[in-house]
Design a protein around this nucleic acid. Structure first.
Lengths: 292, 292
DNA sequence: TTGTATGCGTTATCAT
DNA sequence: ATGATAACGCATACAA
């Protein structure tokens, strides 16, 4: 009969807000535009709402006042925080994680805290097995900036090459930035200028690949006839490019869902033990890798 | 010295939460994955935070309890709500807008309330002028589901054709769904089956176009040699497809920013008069429209 | 079972 | 100016 509960008053009393903080920092100002992250956010939202929680974005600055993430989380009384797409070495992030507030990180592990991980080791292994089976023996890698994800993929790249008996030429491993086509374009330019061109190039992600794609095509080279390429992420773009891009699809939808349920389990049952979930992906084939 | 303000207690006292509700309902479960909307959300977030407000998602159900949008907004004590990507004829939306809570809608006008509008009339006009200049006289339109945006575009399509002296064949205007490649694929199939094939097809949006693209290519037809195509939105995908898609870019970044500043102006100054902002876009050219 | 006081952390008001 | 106090709306603990 017209009565409306008031979450504010309830939260003040119970110390529980039924509200989850979300940390999506647009490092490169592409946080939410990256389909991998927007998919995670989407499923995170759906699952959190299903379990009775709302989502609030947590930022460093609220107006003129600058707060730490921890302070902002406390300020908003969030019961827990999902941390994704940030610099995990930021002391501010570290102190949030080490506080009393339950946290779940995506694609990064803090010892003793829950983490949802895309299996980058398996992903890179699957890619190398695929291109090896296609006959490639001289494979270049363009990797993203130095993060835990990158380290996993690079390690797996070297390990797989060793297992397959491939020698990796140092000049064929280039550093670039994630989700930045121009950066991968520059790395591609260097690879194409080598005396002996690799037969296949692995890109940091599907979107970055488009920078390399333009670079290759503008030189009059054909994909995959002249050079083979592989992406990472498996976003819808990879299905729409021609030739269709071989890539490793990360199950972003499941990652968001698991992050929500894991965090809420921790909020509601403090005895709940932190878990480390590795979410499997799947190799998507296409026409971007030639048989050699 | 370790003192932390508590937004909950402050909100309880002041009736102001410095928190803005966001309504992004995944009608087709693609809400946040649509680059147009994720761009809006991104810039909305940045601007709101700059002005000292946080963002909380508002949904219909919070756990087992089902609430109206209005109830949910009150429950969370939101100072205002940004409404995007929803069914604006939903009575629940209408009662939220008609309540005492300040609202700003995107791409829809409620009389007496603020709205941020992408200029669909100008967009469609620009497209028709462009394809007319390229020599096309037999143009087909695949439009999205019945919304205000669609109505604007369809009206502008007919008006532009009339102005240019083009006759529109009824069988060349097809209904499909936004952001649903399969739906546009079906419409494309019907158009291709016509005795007299139109020389140019306008799609509901860039992403939907990919459904039509596959349909056209699978018939062995070439774009734009056999048939010309135009998208809408100007998302990054449109710059990456080959041939590059002619499309009308909506300034999503500015729309999000204006929505935030407009809503906050209204929250902070109740005397603030509701505004109707039309945000201009720009035609992006490509190679998807042939000279005929 | 049903009802009534107390306090959560703020801000605003009032008296000093 | 400075400091004490009531009230915001709810949940909880306790009394009836």
């Amino acid at each position: 009969m017209g009565y409306l509960p008031n979450a504010t008053a309830r939260a003040l009393k119970t110390k529980r807000s039924q509200n989850i903080g979300v940390l999506f920092v647009d490092t490169t100002h592409s946080g939410l535009k990256h389909e991998y992250f927007s998919s995670i956010l989407d499923s995170l939202k759906v699952e959190a709402e299903r379990l009775g929680y709302d989502l609030t974005f947590i930022s460093k600055n609220i107006g003129k006042f600058s707060m730490s993430y921890y302070e902002h989380t406390r300020y908003r009384n969030c019961d827990g925080v999902v941390i994704a797409s940030v610099d995990f070495r930021d002391p501010d992030i570290i102190s949030l994680v080490q506080s009393e507030i339950p946290t779940v990180t995506l694609d990064y592990v803090f010892e003793g805290h829950s983490a949802i991980l895309s299996d980058n080791t398996v992903g890179m292994t699957a890619i190398l097995d695929y291109v090896y089976a296609k006959g490639h023996r001289d494979i270049a890698l363009i990797h993203g900036e130095d993060t835990e994800v990158t380290r996993k993929r690079v390690e797996s790249f070297y390990a797989s090459c060793a297992r397959l008996g491939l020698t990796v030429r140092p000049e064929c491993v280039k550093a670039a930035l994630y989700h930045a086509p121009a950066s991968s374009a520059a790395a591609t330019r260097e690879l194409l200028a080598l005396d002996r061109r690799p037969t296949c190039v692995l890109f940091p992600d599907d979107y970055s690949y488009t920078g390399g794609m333009n670079e290759i095509e503008s030189r009059g080279l054909a994909i995959p006839e002249d050079i083979s390429v592989v992406g990472y992420d498996g976003i819808s773009l990879s299905r729409l490019l021609r030739p269709r891009l071989v890539t490793f699809k990360q199950d972003a939808e499941r990652m968001g869902r698991e992050a929500a349920s894991q965090l809420i389990a921790e909020i509601e049952g403090p005895e709940h033990v932190p878990a480390r979930l590795s979410i499997p992906g799947v190799l998507l084939t296409g026409e971007s890798v030639a048989e050699v």
